[in-house]
Amino acid sequence: MQRAPGLGMLTGTRLAVWGDPIAHSRSPLLHAAAYNVLGVAWTYDRRRVDEAGFPSALSSLDASWRGLSLTMPLKPAGFQAAVEVDARARATGAVNTLLFERRGLRGYNTDVGGIVAALRELGVGEVPSARILGAGATATSALVALSEMGVGSVEILARRPEAANDLVARGAALGMHSTAGPLDARHHAVDVTVATLPGDAALAPDVVSSLADAGGVLMDVVYGTWPTSLSAAWTERGLTAASGLPMLLHQALRQVRVFVAGEQDQPLDDEARVLAAMRRALVGE
């Protein structure tokens, strides 16, 4: 088993994903598949924890715990709880992975790398322009991911455009030309669209049609509700549309790297077998 220098004090064997809601999470399947290949006897569960209950739930954990995966609405709370965060967590203000160390909690954002890897699988290379739908924590990770891929211009569309002001500022800080607008704005052509809206989000048919006509490749981070109205519109036009499952897979792989070696960008030994096992678990094989 790989172990990074300085992480020898990690003795816990318990892991879990926390969030609210949580029953739909496929993370336990993904992580169990990875640890089976790696030959480590770690447990990985799920627990419903809301934002108000997060501090007390966190303080109740003992030395048997190795780390946590966090989903909504806990990513900002995870950022606040960490005594040290990685560069992607700093750039987003969101932590989806906590590693327990003697000196305190170390926080990581693996969503960014997961989005990059998922878009690469779709054949997306360096592209000039992109559009993000939504303005929440996942939209922030998408913004940083697009920046890492060399996108120079990004448009953020949200039901309340003012909610995207922080994203516009973050985009500018990353050297991107960023703007915000309503979902029903006039849609100019972009190379990539990343949708971070809830799966049950109701969009007017003319808005969906306009977005598809001008949206390039679509990655819709939803995976529990599929197809979405957006993905259906893309498919009807013969355009590429993918769910959030590849993102989920690749961000989970990076979490496994963190829990094993404390570094999300350092590949595991025999990583090809680990990823293949996780991919099979994701589709129920």
Results as ranks from 00 to 15, higher is better:
Arg48Lys: 13
Glu285Arg: 03
Ala158Leu: 04
Val258Cys: 12
Leu248Phe: 13
Asp20Met: 10
Val192Ile: 10
Pro246Lys: 12
Ala212Tyr: 04
Asn165Leu: 14
Gln264Asn: 09
Ala242Phe: 00
Glu126Phe: 03
Phe259Asn: 06
Thr140Tyr: 00
Ser64Ile: 00
Ala276Gln: 06
Glu84Lys: 12
Ser178Tyr: 00
Ala137Pro: 03
Gly12Asn: 11
Thr196Leu: 01
Val221Glu: 00
Met176Leu: 15
His24Val: 01
Leu15Glu: 01
His24Phe: 03
Gly125Arg: 13
Leu174Phe: 05
Ser229Cys: 07
Ala185Thr: 06
Arg257Gln: 13
Arg279Asp: 12
Asp220Leu: 02
Arg237Ser: 11
Trp65Gly: 00
Val17Glu: 07
Val207Leu: 05
Val190Arg: 05
Gly175Asp: 05
Ala23Phe: 01
Ala41Pro: 15
Arg280Gln: 15
Asp220Glu: 07
Leu248Ala: 14
Ala57Cys: 11
Asp111Gly: 10
Leu253His: 11
Ala118Thr: 04
Leu143Trp: 07
Val112Gln: 11
Asp166Cys: 01
Leu68Trp: 08
Leu10Tyr: 01
Val283Arg: 04
Leu98Asn: 06
Arg159Ile: 02
Val127Pro: 04
Ala189Met: 03
Gly171Arg: 01
Ala169Trp: 13
Leu197Lys: 01
Pro73His: 01
Gly78Met: 02
Gly175Cys: 06
Ala34Pro: 05
Ser153His: 14
Val217Gln: 06
Arg47Ser: 10
Asp62Cys: 00
Tyr44Cys: 08
Ser25Trp: 08
Thr13Ala: 08
Arg237Phe: 13
Ala82Pro: 03
Ser69Gly: 14
Gly125Pro: 09
Ala135Lys: 03
Val260Ile: 14
Val168Cys: 13
Met9Leu: 01
Leu119Glu: 02
Val112Pro: 11
Arg88Lys: 10
Val221Met: 02
Leu99Val: 12
His187Ile: 10
Leu122Cys: 15
Pro161Arg: 08
Asp184Ser: 13
Ile115Glu: 05
Asp200Gln: 12
Leu10His: 00
Ser69Ala: 14
Glu285Asp: 14
Thr228Glu: 04
Leu183Glu: 05
Gly175Met: 07
Pro161Phe: 08
Gly93Asp: 10
Asp269Leu: 13
Glu285Asn: 02
Pro161Asn: 08
Ser141Val: 09
His188Phe: 02
Glu271Met: 03
Leu68Arg: 10
Glu126Ala: 15
Ala137Ser: 15
Leu197Gly: 05
Val95Trp: 08
Ala81Thr: 08
Ala281Gly: 09
Leu38Cys: 06
Ser229Phe: 00
Ala139Thr: 06
Ala212Ser: 11
Asp206Phe: 00
Leu248Trp: 11
Asp270Ile: 00
Ala52Ile: 01
Gly8Val: 05
Thr43Glu: 09
Arg280Leu: 13
Ala145Phe: 03
Leu245Arg: 15
Asp45Ser: 13
Ser27Ala: 15
Ala185Lys: 03
Leu203Ala: 07
Leu282Asp: 02
Thr228Asn: 06
Thr196Gly: 03
Met219His: 06
Asp50Gly: 15
Asn96Val: 07
Arg103Cys: 07
Leu122Asp: 13
Leu218Pro: 05
Trp226Asp: 11
Arg3Thr: 12
Leu167Ser: 11
Ala52Cys: 00
